[in-house]
């Protein structure tokens, strides 16, 4: 009884700790800039809607429209998530169900790239993208990031855990490789796919360094990366516009949260029971 109480209060404390910056952002976003000079009020103010309207409407002077940045982020996150899922599903399917030369080697290669963080290959990837004249486009935000060892690995495990007699039954029924993929493998994999979609969407949304390196044109700025510019723009006033910066930050947080909440049930099931 006592242990449980201890554990609960511990969890509560951690949750509060995590929520604190969010609360601070909410407070800053709901006050007038004058209220934020040198202090942070304890309670939220009443200017949240007003600030939201300002940010989404006019934006901050000297920086691209927040709405546009949100749109760019959405394109990038969706593109990366869908691209990763497509590639990973197809390669996992190939590795599990087709016998081709060096099949195992191919899988080990994919798997070993799991060890390499994205940043390690920034330089060569940048060179290649520049060589292909991809810089400053949606393509460069998405295409170089859509290979995923994690997703390939998880889906391979999923396909490998499906009973082999399912494939036998499909072959007896006259389903070819693509029909088995579309009619059986894909629908059966929808839980892990949903979970992976959430993970990869958040991953794509939170990309910072790569968009910063490859897009200099403000038309392609994403909101996470644009935040930096916003802070510069916001603090260049005599009265720093922390209210608007924080409103934008809150807006930037929303879509990943929304995706996670909407797919929560699938997400948890997909990560816990890989079986089916």
């Amino acid at each position: 009884m006592k242990r449980q109480w201890l554990r609960r209060s511990g969890l509560l404390l951690l949750a509060l700790l995590l929520a604190l910056p969010l609360y601070a952002a909410l407070i800053a976003a709901s006050h007038a800039p004058g209220d934020l000079l040198g202090r942070l009020p304890w309670l939220p103010g009443n200017r949240l809607l007003h600030n939201l309207r300002t940010v989404l409407g006019a934006g901050l002077p000297g920086s691209p429209s927040v709405l546009r940045m949100l749109g760019n982020s959405l394109v990038m996150a969706l593109g990366i998530a869908l691209g990763k899922l497509t590639l990973a599903t197809l390669s996992a399917y190939a590795v599990v169900y087709f016998r081709f030369p060096l099949r195992h080697t191919a899988f080990v290669l994919i798997l070993s790239s799991l060890m390499l963080p994205l940043e390690v290959r920034f330089y060569p990837t940048f060179q290649v993208s520049a060589g292909l004249h991809l810089l400053n486009s949606y393509g460069v935000l998405i295409v170089p990031l859509i290979a995923s060892a994690t997703a390939t690995f998880l889906l391979r495990q999923f396909f490998a855990s499906m009973p082999p007699s399912l494939l036998d039954a499909a072959r007896m029924d006259g389903a070819g490789p693509m029909q088995f993929f579309l009619h059986s493998a894909l629908p059966l994999a929808r839980t892990p796919l949903a979970a992976l979609f959430v993970l990869e969407f958040v991953y794509g949304w939170n990309q910072y360094l790569w968009p910063l390196l490859t897009t200099t044109d403000a038309r392609y700025a994403t909101v996470v990366m644009g935040m930096q510019g916003l802070i510069n723009a916001g603090t260049s006033f005599a009265l720093p516009r922390w209210d608007l910066v924080m409103t934008t930050a809150l807006l930037a947080l929303l879509p990943p949260l929304l995706v996670l909440l909407l797919a929560q049930r699938w997400f948890i099931r997909g990560l816990t029971d890989i079986e089916k």
Partner: peptide, 20 residues
């Protein structure tokens, strides 16, 4: 011949029904 071309039907030990 491919299994489907042989005009055979098979019942498996674990049934192998399509779960979805």
């Amino acid at each position: 011949q491919e299994p489907s071309a042989r005009d055979i039907a098979m019942v498996f030990q674990n049934y192998a029904l399509y779960p979805h």
